[in-house]
Amino acid sequence: MADGGIILDDQTLDIPSEPVSARGLTYPLGASPEPGQAIEAAPGVLWLRMPLPMALNHVNVYAIDDGEGWTIIDTGLRTPDTIQAWEAALAGPLGGRPVTRVIATHMHPDHIGLAGWLAERFDAPFLMTRLEYVTARMLIADTGPAPESGARFFHAAGWEDARIEKWRASYGLFAKGVAPMPPSYMRLSEGDVLSIAGHDWSILIGDGHSPEHACLWRKSDNVLISGDQLLPKISSNVSVWPTEPMADPLDDWMASLDKLEQTLPAGTFCLPGHGEPFMGVLPRVQALRRGHEVALKRLERTLRTPSRAVDVFPALFARPVGDGLFGMATGEAIAHLHYLERRGRAQRTPDALGVDWWTLTQKETGA
């Protein structure tokens, strides 16, 4: 999800790390569910998969048996295909039982797109962290025109005028992928415990990919519903956007990885927002951290020559960046540059046209 509401595949610009076979992960469930179907991922937890109209063609959602009905975790994007899949799931594997609660891990459209639709249909309470809820409401309302501060932000990153004009024209699309949000919500906070059919689920909060991402952890059998805070095969996007142009989200992300590593037992079974449920959360956390550390080292080598944010893509990403992913790649590049800048390892120098040129600091070059 790009700033200003451009809906993008926000999970496919992978920061390279080890090959999958070397990550120490196992996938015990085998085949993935078809849209409208479900697989029992853990006792009382059904795994459903909703279609996405993009390169990353699915999002995982989960239904937790709540006695008389179901607690739903994430919902998919608001599209006719997703609504059709939900209708089939509600009548089929969910057995016609009502939705008793809707929980969103975070505010990206593929996770909250039908939250309002489900909550209204079943008169069900909606649960989310405060920063995710208010950010979603802000982006839904922000339909344009595109702010000049955003144009200056992308110009400073090295965007050409034609690309900025395309950004202006597509500004404010967030709401198109999201049904009207519930007008009220119940706040989730770090350390909260939700009782679902007599089982306790603890709330773990992460940061970096989104502002206050909630994971649900059933400590009794070490089941973690991780949303996008921990994915098995791809790295979640960590970006700076024009709404908070001086942010350091990579520091937030690395701190969240440290927290997961220190909190979760080695035998935790992870139910992620994309990909397949897996065992091996600690090797995966370590691989994600190493991937960013290696990318930062490559970035430092690149900055021996003055570079704009758009010039450093090859140092960070595993594949070429096309037009559809350019905004996300820019945000992630700036996040890595800010991380180095905050640590005195890189510096920016605006030129006369307002474009930022990044270089290593003198102490890093040995000058």
Rank of each mutant, 00 (worst) to 15 (best):
G150I: 04
A141V: 08
S184A: 11
S170P: 01
F126N: 09
G96L: 00
R168A: 05
V102A: 13
L127E: 06
H155V: 04
T105K: 14
R152T: 04
A146W: 06
V178P: 05
G150M: 13
R168V: 06
V178S: 08
A119D: 14
E148Y: 05
H106V: 02
W117A: 09
F126Y: 15
M138N: 15
R168L: 02
W167R: 11
I112F: 10
A124H: 00
T129P: 02
S184I: 10
E165V: 07
F153L: 10
A115H: 11
R163C: 05
F174Q: 04
R121W: 00
G172A: 08
G172K: 11
V178E: 06
Y185C: 05
E120N: 09
T129Q: 08
H111E: 14
Y133V: 01
T100E: 07
L173T: 12
G177R: 03
W167C: 02
G144R: 05
A104N: 11
K166H: 00
L118Y: 07
H111M: 05
A141R: 15
F174W: 13
P145D: 01
P109A: 07
W167Y: 13
Y171A: 02
M107R: 11
R97P: 11
I112P: 12
W159T: 13
Y133D: 05
R121S: 09
T100A: 04
A136G: 08
G144H: 03
G113K: 02
E120T: 10
L127M: 12
E165D: 12
L131Y: 12
P145I: 01
V99N: 09
G158R: 10
K176C: 04
E132I: 03
T143E: 15
H111S: 11
A104T: 09
I140H: 09
K176V: 01
H108Q: 14
A119Q: 14
R97K: 12
I140P: 04
A179W: 15
K166W: 03
W159D: 10
Y171C: 04
M181A: 06
G172N: 08
L131A: 14
M181R: 03
K176E: 08
A162R: 14
A162S: 15
M128C: 13
D142S: 15
R152A: 12
R121P: 09
T135D: 13
P180G: 06
M107S: 12
H106W: 08
E165G: 07
K166M: 02
G172Q: 10
R101P: 09
R163H: 12
H108G: 11
T135W: 15
E120V: 05
K166A: 13
P109C: 03
A151Y: 07
A169H: 04
I112L: 14
T100C: 04
S170L: 07
A151S: 13
R137C: 11
L131V: 08
L139W: 12
D123W: 03
G113D: 03
F126C: 05
F153A: 05
E148K: 12
R152S: 10
R101E: 03
A157F: 00
R121E: 00
A136R: 01
F154D: 00
A124D: 04
P183S: 12
G144D: 06
Y185S: 02
A156Q: 04
R121V: 03
H155W: 13
M128D: 01
V134F: 08
E132K: 00
E165P: 06
A157G: 06
T105H: 15
V102C: 09
E148D: 13
